[in-house]
């Protein structure tokens, strides 16, 4: 009897608890969604300026988007977009190759340098990333990658050169592929290269996609390195610097609503990518921890 009761109708106490839980979730969800809604509304706001007298916009317009995408004089957003796209395509290609290569080598091959490499990666990871930034700048300067359009090359190098240190998630994934599959391929006559390209990579689609996407996104959201490297070369700016600049004193009144529009524009593809990726992210997370 008791069991039946519990199944069909919840006891009054549990009902109240349930109600409270859902109410709490609703409040929390509101807190988390509200800022995002607010920024979307702001991007359509008619009146300019960062600060207004009212929380909600008084009038709505598409002009912010139009201005963002067509104004080429003050802050050339389309140009920034193109810069970032070029940089991210190259750095994504290089990073993906680096990350997957290192992860495969560490997961599947056995060589004397393997342990030292992993320890070194851990140690290097403990240094604050910005410590090397200045020195990297000097090295790039010595190589001549800090002037004019070669800044792009410099940025590509900065975003991709050290990605070989970020092998952990991919390695964790590769580690879960049974070794006997590799061995079967070796017995079938495959070289290690063939095992990598014809067995491991096709079997690791989720993690390949994950790697491609994360390395593609990186240049869109970094503003620190980009700022240091671009300095005042405004024709080399990336989207992130552009957005950052829009919030600086000299631009904020004119550009705040455009900033909101820009934020919405680059957030949409990144959010879509992320929502698509989160499955792999969760898998990689629990997989890596288990292994």
């Amino acid at each position: 009897m008791d069991n039946q009761m519990a199944k069909n109708t919840l006891s009054p106490r549990r009902r109240i608890v349930n109600l409270l839980v859902h109410a709490l979730l609703a409040v929390l969800a509101l807190i988390w969604v509200l800022p995002i809604v607010w920024i979307v509304l702001t991007s359509f706001r008619a009146e300019p300026g960062a600060y207004t007298k009212t929380f909600l916009p008084q009038g709505y317009t598409l002009n912010n988007y139009v201005k963002l995408l067509t104004d080429r004089n003050v802050l050339n957003f389309p140009k920034m977009f193109r810069n970032t796209l070029i940089i991210s395509i190259f750095s994504c290609t290089i990073s993906t190759f680096f990350v997957l290569s290192v992860a495969y080598s560490l997961s599947r091959m056995r060589f004397a340098f393997r342990r030292p490499y992993m320890n070194l990666a851990m140690i290097l990871g403990l240094f604050p990333g910005f410590m090397t930034m200045v020195a990297q700048y000097f090295i790039l300067k010595a190589m001549g990658f800090t002037e004019g359009s070669s800044i792009r090359i410099g940025l590509i190098v900065v975003y991709s050169a050290c990605t070989g240190l970020g092998f952990q998630i991919s390695k964790g994934f590769f580690d879960t592929i049974p070794r006997s599959i590799d061995e079967a391929a070796v017995m079938d006559g495959a070289t290690q290269w063939q095992v990598f390209t014809r067995i491991t990579l096709p079997l690791s689609k989720p993690i390949v996609i994950y790697t491609v996407m994360t390395s593609f996104i990186a240049p869109w959201v970094d503003f620190v390195f980009a700022k240091v490297l671009c300095r005042a070369n405004s024709d080399q700016f990336t989207v992130a610097i552009g957005l950052w600049n829009m919030l600086q004193k000299e631009y904020i009144y004119q550009w705040y609503t455009c900033f909101a529009a820009g934020a919405v524009l680059i957030s949409i593809p990144i959010a879509l990518l992320f929502l698509y990726m989160q499955r792999f992210y969760v898998e990689g997370m629990s997989g890596a921890v288990k292994g």
Binding site: P178, S180, I181, A184, V186, M187, T191, P202, L203
Partner: peptide, 19 residues
């Protein structure tokens, strides 16, 4: 090398290529 020994092997967990 294994591939030059003209030996084939059947594994306990089959080790088929899932893809």
């Amino acid at each position: 090398e294994p591939k030059d020994r003209d030996i084939a092997m059947v594994f306990q967990n089959y080790a088929l290529y899932p893809h």
